[in-house]
Write a protein that binds this DNA or RNA. Structure first.
Lengths: 207, 207
DNA sequence: TGTGGTTTGTGAAATGTTTAACATGCGGTT
DNA sequence: AACCGCATGTTAAACATTTCACAAACCACA
């Protein structure tokens, strides 16, 4: 592939996949139909898919089962992924019980906290371990994905430890912007910033 | 202002603000220093700020207190915003106790659920109300921002109700992509999609 | 008042992404 | 086997965003 894939195309792929799940009973779906299901333009649907290969048949559209498998393969969600959770507070607990993860092949395998009141507790079948065991456990289990839902204070250190343990991809719910090596990725979910974007929208709308 | 503001500039503004908070003790800060604090380029810092006005002094930089106030005004976080929370499950409860919101002037004023076991409970000083009261309460209280942390099933209906009640900005944690009128905004926080982006990164890295 | 050092604000270029438009290719039909 | 209709894949244009590079502006100091 010569062309680079726009970052935004990847989450769109996830949405196309969801749309395909809704198209049961049919064999083929056109970019036009996917467009209506996802609210992206038909041209964008076709363009996005061609970033990754040629999946359609002119005159017919995309064979649904084949395209589903192809997208799973591209995203890597045809495999199961083990995930470590750091921080078993309110948010961490909520994430542990979030149903959507398991559905797409993500399994939280171990959870960690530094709060003695939480360590040893079992939530959703996972026993919360002392954070001092983080590096050893994660590296032994070969976990590559981690979710950080700790307080802000220890977050950079937690992320450093995760990287040392071999984690390559992190979903970070703390407001810090961590420094990480090139070969790792951190996606930040920053709730305050999202609310501020909403406030900006409301403020601007009035002006 | 002739030039349109890129969508991505707004969250960067939030990050500049945070960087300014860390620059205590100084009066002025340069785009170069802000660049180092935020990992954006100095040119981007300057460009972003000029989307909203002229805040700097050539040769000196940006006066910190003035710039802080300016950003607060732009984002609308100089005011307090009341927020409604729909869905008092694990995630909703976690959001209720999330400290970062209050800090930036967002206050969850009321919470709703359709589960009889949750209705009437008081969490963080907020009593969970029956979702049937959603439209009336939210419209009476004049709330403009809502967080949706319900299950997938009722989500579109919840969002429709919020819009009817006058809500203009929604932070949506469910995986649905809601249809809303032009004058409203919905920001989607889709945890499965974020994990899938991570899986894509890991899968691609190997290839 | 003039000069030097510094940093902004901004045209212009470079880069990246989306949309438009259509030639190409495929399947079905006669 | 040839034709028709349809939807893909792709080329080119349009649009959007970021980076570059420098003139203009300001301050400090002599």
């Amino acid at each position: 592939m010569i062309n680079k894939v726009p970052q935004a195309a990847v989450p769109r792929l996830s949405l196309y996949y969801r749309a395909l799940l809704e198209s049961r009973g049919k064999d083929y779906v056109s970019s036009d139909e996917l467009s209506k299901l996802t609210n992206f333009t038909a041209a964008q649907v076709r363009r996005d898919l061609t970033y990754f290969g040629q999946f359609g048949t002119p005159g017919k559209g995309y064979e649904i089962e084949g395209l589903k498998k192809a997208i799973l393969g591209i995203l890597g969600t045809d495999k199961n992924w083990d995930v470590a959770l750091v921080g078993a507070g309110n948010l961490g607990t909520a994430l542990l019980s979030y149903k959507g993860f398991k559905q797409q092949g993500f399994k939280i395998l171990s959870a960690f906290d530094n709060d003695l009141r939480k360590i040893g507790k079992t939530l959703e079948g996972i026993t919360v371990q002392d954070i001092s065991e983080l590096e050893k456990t994660v590296s032994e289990q070969g976990i590559q994905i981690a979710i950080v839902a700790t307080s802000t204070e220890g977050a950079q250190e937690v992320i450093d430890t995760l990287i040392r343990a071999g984690v390559k991809a992190i979903l970070n719910f703390t407001p810090i912007r961590a420094q990480t090596p090139e070969e790792a990725i951190v996606l930040n979910i920053d709730l305050s910033i999202e609310l501020e974007r909403l406030a900006y929208f409301l403020t601007k709308a009035k002006a």
